[in-house]
Every structure is written in C-alpha cells, then in structure tokens.
C-alpha cells in the first residue's frame, strides 16, 4: 500500500468511526446493535491484497480502539483486526475470489465481523473484562451478524466506488 492510500484509508476510517459513534449508535435496533464501522472495515480488508489486508486491519483496529465508550485495553481491536486481516489474506484463494460474488461476499463479511467480536470476547476474558452472560453475548453476536447481512448490500456499491477512486493508477 502506498503512503497516500494509507492516509486516505485512515481518513475514511475516521469519518466512518464518527458516523458510527454519533449517528448509528443512537439507533435502537430491535435485536442487539449494528456496527457499520466493523462491517465496512471487514469489507475493506476483504478487498485488499495480502499486505493490504494486514495494514487495513491494523489501522481499522487502532481507530476503533479510540472509541471513548470502550472498556477494552487500547490495542485490543488492532490486534484482533490484524489477525482477521491475516485470516482473510491467507484463506482468500481457498474460497475462490469471493469479492466477485456479492452474495458470498456479504456472508463472508458477516462471518468476519462475528469472528472479530468472538475474538474480542475471548481476548477480553483473558485480560479480565466482564462481558455478561453467554445468552446476552450470543444475542449481540447474532444481532450484529443479522444486521450486517441486511445492510452490507446497501453500502457495498458505494464502497467499491470509493475504493476505485482511492486506488492509484499503479494499484489499479
């Protein structure tokens, strides 16, 4: 990834983070909640090449770690999304190129977001965080996956366009 694109990706993630924290979080979703930020971050990770997935995952995690409402240690999301980036990068070819099929892509994004939240819970437990009952956590995981499946097709075309614009001629 070029420094210019790292900067533009970081700026995009900051804008997205602001939208998530100030607008999306105000909405009371019927089942649990929806993290637009996490869904878009996973989508960006999925679009990138091997190194790009790692870098975007790390940057997305660092921005998410800035959330003032989070009670997790700073760096936890960076660690988790870097690992998610690595898993996407290494397994992308195993499932063919899922970015070309919107339906499969949506389910991969939902699975990635759920996996990230599961890892967040697991790592949180290791460092002594209290995250509530298993039932409560399962509802949050299910709710987030459901809303990700519903909303991802809506933002996907716009995200593809934004990404195309941000690519340099060499990267295209």
């Amino acid at each position: 990834m070029s420094p210019t694109r790292i900067f533009s990706t970081l700026a995009f993630l900051f804008i997205l983070f602001t939208i998530q924290e100030s607008a999306i979080s105000l909405i009371h979703f019927p089942i649990a909640g929806f993290s637009l930020y996490l869904a878009v971050a996973i989508s960006l990770i999925a679009f990138e090449d091997h190194n790009g997935s790692l870098v975007v995952g790390f940057l997305a995690g660092i921005v998410l770690d800035l959330s003032p409402t989070s009670n997790a240690p700073f760096g936890q999301w960076a660690l988790i999304l870097t690992i998610v980036g690595y898993l996407f990068a290494t397994n992308r070819e195993s499932f063919a190129d899922f970015t070309t099929s919107p339906v499969i892509f949506v389910f991969f994004v939902a699975a990635g977001a759920t996996m990230a939240l599961l890892m967040y819970l697991g790592f949180g437990t290791l460092v002594g965080e209290v995250n509530g009952s298993i039932n409560h956590d399962l509802v949050i995981l299910f709710g987030n996956a459901l809303w990700t499946i519903i909303f991802t097709p809506m933002y996907l075309p716009a995200l593809r366009t934004v990404r195309k614009i941000s690519l340099t001629s060499k990267e295209r």
């Binding site: 998530q20 989070s70 939240l117």
Partner: peptide
C-alpha cells in the same frame, strides 16, 4: 449518544 455496538459495554 449510546455505547458503540462494537464493544460489549
């Protein structure tokens, strides 16, 4: 504002 959906707090 309400807590972020990406954390369990």
């Amino acid at each position: 504002g309400h807590g972020s959906a990406s954390s369990f707090s």
